[in-house]
């Protein structure tokens, strides 16, 4: 494997990012480079701001009233907080998988086709083609090809979560954000999602927030450890877990917080 830290141009650059919920500062001067075709993991104890940081990358924090962001996030060297950024377009390029599987109360097919319908594509053949391609990419085609019209909410949890991934792949994002995607799943389902992520890395850039340090160690190329809104350490996952530079990272990894 190539050294993950050998930098091509980063896909996303986070510069001096501060975020306030009202008067509470949730992110403090965070800097981070998200490398193309790598899995970047954000770890740290609950409430350290890792999910908040993730949600800055596709501006999902805009939904929360009273949030103020300073600093900058660049996607391919364009500022996503700039006034010329179309948030809907941004979210097509930077997609998100949530903590709890959240397929829509529609059929499997309509879930996957949702992103295309949103983009105004209604041609049946094209939709069908994308549905198949996306479900294949999320390893669901074989199980679900005969059940495309059954309701998505009737699927087991891990299939629901992979359906959410398929739904995302249908819009061909550049970056996939995953917010603790396995926390609602059992270990076997977790394994499936992790294998899927490793395969998706070939084509996509992935940022994952996880509570599970073994998971970060297993799948990520780069890790950032956060504490109380600070990015206390960022580097190749191997280094973070075997030879952390910061005492606090060491403490978190060895289980002294969290």
């Amino acid at each position: 494997m190539s050294n993950p830290f050998v930098s091509q141009t980063p896909r996303m650059t986070i510069r001096n990012l501060d975020l306030f919920y009202g008067t509470f500062q949730a992110l403090k001067q965070v800097n981070l480079l998200v490398q193309i075709n790598r899995i970047t993991a954000l770890i740290g104890p609950s409430g350290c701001g890792k999910s908040t940081l993730l949600r800055c990358l596709n501006r999902m924090n805009d939904l929360i009233p009273g949030v103020r962001v300073t600093g900058d996030v660049l996607l391919d060297s364009q500022s996503i907080y700039g006034s010329d950024m179309d948030v809907c377009r941004l979210r097509k390029r930077v997609g998100m998988v949530f903590q709890r599987p959240n397929p829509f109360p529609l059929s499997v097919r309509d879930n996957v086709a949702f992103g295309l319908r949103v983009a105004g594509i209604t041609r049946k053949n094209q939709l069908q083609e994308v549905v198949e391609r996306s479900l294949r990419a999320a390893w669901l085609w074989e199980q679900l090809k005969d059940r495309l019209d059954s309701p998505a909410l009737s699927l087991p949890m891990d299939q629901q979560q992979r359906l959410c991934v398929a739904r995302l792949l249908a819009v061909e994002p550049e970056v996939i954000l995953m917010d603790e995607p396995c926390s609602a799943l059992d270990p076997i389902s977790t394994g499936k999602i992790e294998d899927l992520m490793l395969e998706l890395r070939e084509q996509y850039t992935i940022v994952i927030v996880t509570h599970n340090m073994q998971q970060a160690a297993r799948i990520s190329d780069l890790s950032g450890c956060m504490l109380l809104g600070d990015m206390i350490e960022f580097g190749p996952t191997g280094n973070i877990f075997t030879n952390p530079a910061d005492k606090r990272t060491q403490d978190y990894i060895s289980g002294r917080y969290g």
Partner: peptide
């Protein structure tokens, strides 16, 4: 559930698309 709205918006839907499609 609020997660439906988030899911739709995260796929690049506008507010109105999220409302009437989901």
């Amino acid at each position: 559930p609020k997660t439906y709205l988030e899911g739709a918006l995260a796929l690049g839907a506008t507010r109105w698309q999220s409302v009437h499609m989901v």
